[in-house]
Design a binder for these strands. Structure first.
Lengths: 215, 215
DNA sequence: TTAGGTATTATTGTATACACGGATGCAGAG
DNA sequence: CTCTGCATCCGTGTATACAATAATACCTAA
């Protein structure tokens, strides 16, 4: 997975800003200027501008006459993204099973194993990262670059957004259990069951976000 | 709809390159360098780079050690995008009906009226543009920015790709008829029917693309 | 002839200078 | 007090210069 070149300042700025916007550090409606970012991050305008162009393309920011306005993710955006995932994450699951290699299966298995490990440790940060990996492994192995490119950004945004909303203490356990159930169905190559488990998983996440609490 | 500022070179380069990539002028796998684009387009590297960053974000290009490699849209990408549309364009249609204003309805109606007009003229270029508008009006009026941002790029890419594959002589008539049927269902606020008509419309487009011919 | 090393070149990454345009604030007139 | 016009400033858009890196080609030596 190693890139052929070292991460550029452009990329670093992009990831930094994306994280800060999704995590809510930059509030919706806030105006940020290039020069302000330059001094904050200690780089010149070039990498800042290139990062902003990419964020613009993801509709996380908007150009205004006074500078760059932060858009970020609203609660409605979150629900809309979940709704879309409910419709097409099924395609990824079916694709993953159809294209599954032993390596893919093992990778997914390991992700869940690690989740269970960090669950006993109560290591929320690692759990969150692994939650992201679990879904991204499925996207990456679904056989469709388009589907991967559509779902991965949605999931990333949802995940960051959720992180902001609820600090996931009890959610973790249920989430890992649901991942395990999905993994088992996938391992058994039972596509219908896996899809159903995934659907439940996403719906549960929506419920938890709405209630702000684990039942 | 007017932007508050004139279109920048960055934007122009972006749209130019996007069109050329989607239309196949730049072949998949082809390597293009920034300087080459600069001399071709007569601008400096800055706007070129910013345009490339946005194309990169859309996964239409890829960075390689030798330059920027064109990815573009493959036939499989086309099918995958259509599959996704089949799943979520329904949401847009339902959203549009739920949020429909008289203005929205009229706008959609006009788009179809114009299509029928240009159909009698055999004006394929205008028909293509209006086909894009028809769907984008629905996206824009569906009440979900996320859904709009997800569907609009898919449709744009599909449309450009199709344009390349078949020069749409006979397809036009059926397409307009299908749009009319969708519009009628929407006007009647019959969401289930509208969704069904839309589903057929997309499936027909897939069939036509696969056969390369109108039945 | 071939292998290895070095020099050159090609391309990108970054910083910065300059230009342009709009917003803002101030001053003066009504 | 308000409105208008001008000057200033702030922020972005673009071009270009410089640096670093990686590929390539050439030359030399075995």
């Amino acid at each position: 997975m190693m890139d052929y070149k070292t991460v550029s300042l452009s990329d670093q700025v992009f990831e930094h800003l994306e994280t800060d916007i999704l995590s809510g550090k930059y509030q919706r409606g806030e105006i940020i200027t290039e020069l302000q970012l330059c001094s904050e991050l200690g780089v010149s305008r070039t990498p800042v501008r290139e990062a902003l162009r990419r964020l613009f393309q993801e509709h996380l920011i908007e150009d205004t006459p006074k500078g760059t306005m932060v858009l970020g993710i609203t609660p409605k955006d979150y629900l809309d993204m979940s709704e879309i995932r409910l419709r097409i994450e099924e395609l990824a699951v079916r694709g993953f099973i159809a294209n599954m290699t032993e390596d893919n299966r093992k990778e997914l298995n390991e992700a869940v194993d690690f989740q269970e490990f960090y669950l006993t440790r109560g290591d929320v940060d690692h759990l969150r990262a692994l939650d992201g990996q679990f879904h991204e492994i499925i996207y990456a192995g679904c056989g469709s670059r388009v589907l991967q490119d559509t779902l991965a950004p949605l999931h990333k945004k949802i995940q960051q957004y959720r992180h902001n909303a609820l600090q996931a203490p009890l959610r973790a356990k249920n989430s890992v259990q649901e991942h395990r159930a999905i993994l088992e169905a996938i391992t058994a190559r039972d596509a219908d069951l896996a899809v159903e488990k995934m659907r439940q998983h996403i719906e549960n996440a929506i419920d938890r976000a709405l209630n702000g609490q684990e039942k």
